Computed example of a mutant assay.
Amino acid sequence: MHLQRRDSDATTSAQASKTTGIQTDPSATPSAFSIPQPFDTALSNNFTTPCAAWFRRLLTNSTFNACHPFSLMLQTSSGFFDASKSYIGITKTLEATCNVNTTICLGNMNALARELRDNANCAVDYANDNPQVLQAYNGLVAYYPLYQAGCLTDTDGRYCFANAVTNTTATTDSYPYYLPLGVSMPGGARPTCNTCLQNAMAIFSNFAGNSTQPISKTYNAAAQQIDLSCGPTFINKTAVPLKGAASATAPTFAPTITLFIMILFYFFN
């Protein structure tokens, strides 16, 4: 069920802020809101020529853009970071990413992931651990687990990620959503033990046993960490990688760490 919300409902907004710490101030959302897009800032110049050409084709791919992939927005979109400052802005973004034909989008993301690693495109850059290439690849292969997690709603029909990223009293609630991108959860993170976290981790558990998915490298440690604060039966803590599957990437995620720092700066200043 998608959230239906009146932006003018100030009473409901105030009540939500008091009871959950969720920021719902309509003034934080630009009046002319546009859905964020991946890689919406200047790309690095550190690409081989064929890979740079592939990225240009990617960003003009109408099918790709129509999918509004949550998995790629998380790490690469400054517009997504701005939308995450507002409950209304991030809700509108999630409504767009969830209101797509998943069959078409999943097929497109898988095809693009294969293209990226082709010798004629970004194979050399991928092998050299180019950060933006690795972010693109991980975002493409993690499309479906993050589509499912991004579209989760709570019992009131509010998007779980919107609750998490705008919750000023629990600023680590959004960290688990980065696990499918191969980003480990910081050691001190203690996300709120609620149904949203439980359901998101259940989705991730279904993919963590596949070593072609980046979450195969991050799920178990995060599950054990959540176990410390939420109890031993809160989530499934063991996901064994499938034998014979291709190795997952183990990249450096400096741009993502920067986003985390920006998020913490926003909430504590």
Rank of each mutant, 00 (worst) to 15 (best):
M1K: 11
Q4S: 10
D7Q: 12
S8F: 04
T11I: 09
T11Q: 12
T12S: 08
T12Q: 12
A14Q: 14
K18N: 14
G21K: 10
Q23G: 04
Q23E: 11
T24Q: 14
T29L: 04
F33N: 03
I35S: 03
Q37V: 14
Q37L: 12
D40S: 12
N46E: 11
T48P: 02
T49C: 00
C51I: 04
A52V: 00
F55D: 05
R56D: 15
L59E: 04
T60N: 15
N61C: 02
T63G: 03
F64H: 04
N65S: 11
M73E: 13
S77Y: 07
S78Y: 09
G79W: 03
D82Q: 12
S84K: 05
K85A: 08
S86R: 02
Y87T: 01
I88R: 15
I90K: 01
N99P: 04
V100H: 12
N101F: 06
T102Q: 11
T102N: 11
T103N: 14
T103R: 13
C105A: 06
C105G: 08
G107S: 08
N110P: 04
A111S: 13
L112W: 10
L112D: 10
R117Y: 12
A123P: 04
D125F: 05
A127I: 03
N128P: 06
Q135D: 15
N138G: 14
N138D: 15
L140P: 13
A142C: 09
A142P: 08
Y144T: 03
Y147A: 00
A149S: 15
T155K: 08
G157V: 05
G157K: 09
Y159L: 02
Y159G: 03
C160M: 02
C160S: 07
N163T: 11
V165H: 00
V165M: 00
T166F: 01
T166R: 02
T168W: 08
A170D: 05
T171Q: 08
S174L: 10
Y175I: 08
Y175P: 04
Y175F: 15
Y175S: 11
Y177Q: 05
Y177S: 05
L179P: 05
L179V: 03
L179E: 05
V183C: 07
S184E: 14
S184A: 15
M185G: 11
P186C: 09
G187P: 07
G187C: 01
A189F: 07
A189L: 04
R190C: 01
P191Y: 05
T195K: 12
A200R: 09
A200E: 14
A202K: 13
I203H: 10
A208E: 00
A208V: 00
G209P: 01
N210P: 00
S211G: 10
T212V: 09
P214M: 08
S216Q: 07
S216E: 08
K217N: 14
Y219C: 00
A221W: 11
A221D: 13
A222H: 10
Q224W: 06
Q224K: 07
C230E: 06
C230H: 06
P232L: 00
T233H: 09
F234H: 01
I235P: 04
K237T: 15
T238S: 14
T238G: 01
V240C: 03
P241M: 13
P241Y: 14
L242Q: 13
L242H: 06
G244S: 10
G244A: 08
G244E: 11
A248P: 03
A250E: 11
T252M: 01
P255H: 06
T256E: 06
I257N: 13
F260L: 02
I261L: 12
L264D: 13
L264E: 12
Y266N: 15
F268G: 02
F268T: 14
N269I: 05
